[in-house]
Computed example of a mutant assay.
Amino acid sequence: MNASVAIQVLPKVLEQEETRRIVDEVISYLASTGLHYAVGPFETTLEGELDQLLDLVKECCRICVRAGSPSVMSYVKISYKPDGVWTIADKTGRYQTL
């Protein structure tokens, strides 16, 4: 694993429930990839290889449009280090509560 990506998609739709429906489709897609991920209140973080993660970012935008959004804004953070990046657990594990 040489990268982690945090992505927030904002479909350009008017109704809050429509936004939720489209974002849920994106999260379902991310879950289907088999990659380790964590959903947060503003963004979803994934771990994997850089090229694979960048392809996922593109697909997330396409999913929003296929789901009915005329356009989408995506905010993406990328951490890349060829010999390995910190995992989600490394970054936030000690703060998790049960």
Rank of each mutant, 00 (worst) to 15 (best):
E43K: 00
P70Q: 10
D24R: 02
L35P: 00
G48A: 12
E43Q: 07
P41S: 11
I88H: 04
I27S: 07
R21S: 02
G68P: 07
T92Q: 10
T33Q: 09
T44S: 12
T87V: 03
V72I: 12
T97L: 14
V57M: 09
Y37I: 06
W86E: 14
D90P: 04
C60E: 04
E59T: 14
H36Y: 07
L50H: 04
G48E: 04
R21T: 10
R66L: 12
I7H: 01
Q8A: 12
G40M: 08
A38F: 06
G40D: 12
E18V: 11
R94W: 06
C60V: 08
S74H: 03
E59V: 12
P82N: 11
A3S: 08
T44G: 05
G34A: 07
I63F: 05
L54Q: 02
L50P: 03
E17G: 00
S4G: 07
L35V: 01
L46G: 01
P82V: 13
V72K: 05
I78R: 02
Y29H: 14
I63D: 08
Q8D: 00
V85H: 06
G84V: 01
V72D: 02
L14W: 08
V39Q: 14
Q52I: 13
Q52T: 15
L46A: 09
T45L: 08
D90A: 04
E49R: 13
Q96C: 05
D51M: 09
R20M: 13
K91P: 05
G68T: 10
V39P: 02
V76P: 10
Y75T: 14
H36F: 03
G84S: 08
Y75M: 15
V76D: 05
I27Q: 09
G68F: 10
K77P: 01
R94Y: 06
E15H: 13
L54E: 06
V26D: 00
Y37Q: 00
V23Q: 05
A3W: 01
Q52E: 15
D51C: 00
V5Q: 02
V13W: 06
K81R: 15
S74Q: 10
L50Y: 07
E43V: 04
I22E: 01
I88P: 03
E25F: 00
V65A: 02
I78W: 06
E43L: 00
P70G: 07
Q96W: 08
V65M: 14
G84I: 12
T19N: 03
P70F: 07
V76E: 07
A31R: 15
T45A: 10
D55G: 04
Y95T: 09
P11N: 01
M73W: 06
I78S: 03
K12Q: 12
S69N: 09
R62I: 10
W86G: 00
Y95S: 12
